[in-house]
Amino acid sequence: MSNLFSVFDPSSTFLNLSLNWLSAFIGLMLIPSSLWLIPSRSTLMWTTITFKLHEEFKLLIGKKSIHKGSTFIFISLFSIILYNNFMGLFPYVFTSTSHMVMTISLALPMWLSFMLYGWINNNKHMFAHMVPQGTPGLLMPFMVCIETISNMIRPGTLAVRLAANMIAGHLLMTLLGNTGNCIMLYLIPLLIITQILLLTLESAVAIIQSYVFVVLSTLYSSEVN
């Protein structure tokens, strides 16, 4: 009969290394790193960025009409879009933000929630937005139609802007990359330099487009208060 305590002996091995002791470190994955690690430079940089975004969104929404925690929705949205945009720059990684299914699912629910909140709670304010201040009486019916159409297409413009900007750069990089097999040998260094410049441009576009998407969403939310 085997020893009763042998069930507690390390048994999972890989290349003669005992893997049982890894269970002692699994719990560290469940604890936020801010509680057991000194914040790194990247953590401090990201914290600074989120604080700057928080201050800017607070100014865009307005101090009188701000609800507590509303800026964190837009900061989270910025983080999600920025992450997906940058992940699309890696080879063989699916760029989710280049598809309308992803972008419209981000823009449409936010726009609908803003519209429902505005028309339920501030319907007079929403009606006042239909006619800009100083509009002549003869043009008021036309301005109502124009403002209504421009309001209705907002989620579409948000979604198309993000998807089109993500597709354009990636498509150009793919087309240039596919020509590498059939161009002259002395043109390959020029192609590599062009691809590096395009990759730098796409990194900037990834940041700018996520920022533009969130800033426009913030401005749309400020109009319903």
Rank of each mutant, 00 (worst) to 15 (best):
G137R: 05
K58F: 03
E55N: 12
I120G: 04
R154G: 04
P155L: 00
I208K: 08
T43Q: 15
F94H: 10
F86Q: 02
A24Y: 13
G88V: 02
T95F: 11
F86I: 06
P136C: 03
K63R: 12
L116G: 10
W36C: 02
I192W: 06
H170E: 14
T135L: 07
G118Y: 01
F72V: 06
N165S: 15
I61A: 00
Y186R: 11
W111M: 10
S42H: 15
S33R: 08
L89N: 07
K52Q: 15
V214K: 00
A24D: 13
F78I: 01
G88Y: 05
L172E: 12
M115H: 14
T47V: 13
L106N: 00
M140D: 06
F8I: 11
M100I: 08
P39L: 03
S221M: 14
I183L: 03
L30T: 09
Y220V: 06
L191T: 03
H67D: 08
P32M: 02
M166T: 01
L171C: 12
I81E: 00
L191P: 01
G137P: 01
V224W: 03
L198Y: 00
K58T: 04
I207Q: 02
Y117R: 05
P141V: 02
L197M: 02
L60W: 06
Q133V: 08
N178P: 03
S65M: 09
H129C: 09
V215S: 01
T43Y: 11
V93P: 02
F25E: 08
M152Q: 05
A164V: 11
V7G: 09
I149T: 07
K52W: 12
T179L: 10
M102C: 12
Y117G: 01
F90Y: 04
W119E: 04
V205W: 02
S96Q: 14
L172K: 07
L77Y: 03
T174N: 12
K63L: 08
F90H: 03
A168L: 10
S65P: 03
C145I: 09
V212W: 01
E55K: 07
L82C: 05
M1L: 10
S96Y: 12
K58E: 07
L19T: 06
N181E: 10
S18H: 15
S6M: 12
L171A: 15
Y83K: 06
T194R: 05
F86A: 05
I73H: 05
A128L: 07
A24T: 14
K68T: 07
E55H: 12
I81W: 00
T47S: 10
F127W: 14
H99C: 14
N123C: 11
L162Q: 01
L190T: 04
V131W: 01
M115Q: 14
I61E: 04
I26A: 12
L201P: 05
F57K: 04
H99E: 14
N178D: 11
Y186F: 15
M152C: 09
F51N: 15
F74R: 05
A159Y: 02
N3A: 11
S42C: 12
F86T: 05
S40T: 07
L30R: 15
I208G: 13
L28M: 13
N123I: 13
N225T: 15
A206T: 05
H54S: 15
L28Y: 05
T135F: 02
A24G: 07
S76A: 10
N151V: 04
S12C: 04
W36S: 07
S98F: 08
G156P: 01
L37N: 09
T103V: 06
I149P: 05
L17S: 03
N85M: 00
L30N: 14
L106W: 00
